[in-house]
């Protein structure tokens, strides 16, 4: 039995009671945010391995740089034109662009424009996916071969949640869902903890943490406390930037709780 996943060009083949994938023709460009490249290279490696493990052909365009989000968010989008051009040159040739960050993905999806290459920019805005939504919506993963025997709390990053709709927003009166949660539940021996406030912002917000230090720190402390109170061993999420903020707070508190990007968990064995 063979099912074609609409609009993705992906063939899913139903074998032995579960889906396997035929993604050979799909050309994926891996977009690794600058701070992951510089500070958390293991997240980039885990993302690559995870995708390849599921039959995705991945290339890493070596000329990629920062996507320009910090400038744009601070009101200097007009100074980020070179970032946009470079991004388009690096990624225009791919069927999909996949990125282990909700916030960088959203930035490209909403703000990538180029006066000369607008057609290419428009295509890229349609073809960029955050890692977990790519895995659930395009690859259609139903079974993960991963094991992570720990109590884990999910941090729902705002850009992923509200911009990309990776999970249901708690204030909407609508059926709940969570794409990161859906994947984590496939990880063997992983125990997902529940939180008092399941999608409260951590207070990082990029430049917000610089300009609004006091509130940013307090929000981070409160977010950490919710996870700690529910006995998390790890806090995971789709955005290393939020996790970096929480990690700073955990380390100052000398807490044994650790942060870990979701790609690392999904790739663990």
């Amino acid at each position: 039995m063979e099912l074609i996943l609409k609009n993705t060009g992906v063939n899913r083949i139903f074998v032995d009671g579960r889906f396997s994938y035929n993604l050979i023709d799909m050309n994926v460009g891996l977009f690794i945010p600058c701070y992951i490249d510089q500070l958390y290279p293991q997240v980039g490696i885990a993302t690559l391995e995870l995708l390849e493990k599921h039959g995705v052909k991945v290339s890493y365009p070596a000329n990629q740089t920062c996507c320009g989000q910090p400038m744009a968010n601070s009101g200097f989008e007009h100074l980020a034109h070179n970032c946009n051009r470079n991004f388009i040159n690096s990624f225009a040739s791919f069927d999909y662009i996949v990125c282990p960050s909700g916030s960088c993905t959203l930035h490209i999806k909403e703000h990538l424009h180029d006066a000369k290459l607008e057609a290419e920019a428009t295509e890229i805005r349609k073809r960029i996916f955050e890692l977990t939504e790519f895995l659930t919506d395009v690859v259609g993963i139903q079974h993960l071969n991963a094991r992570f025997p720990h109590k884990v709390g999910i941090h729902q990053s705002c850009h992923g949640l509200r911009g990309l709709h990776l999970a249901q927003m708690s204030e909407l009166m609508a059926a709940p869902f969570s794409k990161p949660g859906q994947l984590l539940r496939q990880v063997q021996d992983l125990e997902l903890i529940s939180l008092d406030r399941k999608d409260e912002c951590c207070g990082f917000g990029g430049t917000f943490s610089v300009f609004e230090e006091a509130v940013s720190v307090k929000m981070g402390q409160d977010r950490v406390a919710d996870h700690v109170n529910h006995e998390a061993e790890y806090i995971t999420g789709v955005d290393m930037s939020c996790l970096m903020h929480l990690d700073g707070i955990l380390k100052r508190k000398k807490s044994p709780v650790k942060v870990i990007h979701i790609a690392e968990i999904l790739n663990s064995k």
Partner: peptide, 10 residues
């Protein structure tokens, strides 16, 4: 303010 937008969903 550019921070998060839960307000919009409410």
């Amino acid at each position: 303010y550019l921070l998060p937008l839960p307000c919009v969903g409410r």
